[in-house]
Amino acid sequence: MATEAESGTGLVFHPMDQFIVKPLFGDVIHWYTPTNVTLWMGLAALCVIALMVFGTTGRATIPSRIQSVAELAYGFIYKMVEDVAGKDAVKFFPYVMTLFLFIVFSNFLGLIPMSFTTTSHFAVTIVLALLVFLTVTIVGFIKNGVHFLELFWVTSAPLALRPVLAIIELVSYFVRPVSHSIRLAGNVMAGHAVIKVFAGFAALAVVSPVSILAITAMYGIEVLVAFIQAYVFTILTCVYLKDALHPGH
C-alpha cells in the first residue's frame, strides 16, 4: 500500500510505522526482550515515581509545586472513587490510581515527538481492561455471591421483558472490556496517525504551512484527548466497580 502511494503521488505515508515494536538491542523479540515498549513504560513508571515519591519527600504542610500536583492527583482520583464507586470502594483506590497515572503518563510521554506510545497498542489496553473486568467480576461474586447476577435481572422492568433485557445486559457486560480497551487505544492511535498523515503532506512545499498548522492544532487536541481518555478509563473503572459493590443500584 505504501509503495502504491509513493508511486502515485510522490508522497510517503507511513502513519502506522510509529507504532512498530522494536527491540532495543538485536533483532529478535522474545517475551523478555527489552524493546521500545520497555523503554517508554519504564519512563512512565519513572515519571510516576518522580511525581508521587520524590515530589513528596518534603511532606510539607505548605506544599511545594510538585507536591501540590501530586496532592491534586491524589485528591482528584480519591474523590472520583468515593463519589462514583462509593465509600467502600476506597480500598481499590491504589489500584485505580495506578491505572490512571500509568495511562496519563503513557499518553503524555507518547506526545513527545519521536517517542513511542504504549497505550496505542491493543495488547496493552486489552490487558488493562481485562484486569478491570476480572477484578470487577471476581469482587462482585465474592462480595455478593449469586446476588451479583441480579445485575442482569432488571427487577424494575415488566416480567415479560426481563429475559430479553438479561441477554442484552449480559452481552453489554462482556462487551465492556472490548469497548473499554479499544476506546483508549483507538483514540490515541487515531490522533497520532492523523498527525502523521498531515506530516506526510508537509513534503509538498505548497501545502506545508497548512500542514504544519494542522499538526499544531491536532497536537493541541491530542493533549486534551490524552488527559480525557485517561480520565474516562478511570471513571469507567469506578463505574464498573460500583456495579460490583452495589449490583442492586
Binding site: 515494536v21 517475551w31 526482550t33 491493543f122 495488547a123
Partner: peptide, 15 residues
C-alpha cells in the same frame, strides 16, 4: 503493528 501478535507477549510482560 498493533495486530502483530508476535510482540504481544513481550508487551504484556513489560506492562
Amino acid at each position: 503493528p498493533q495486530l502483530d501478535f508476535t510482540t504481544w507477549g513481550n508487551q504484556i510482560f513489560w506492562l
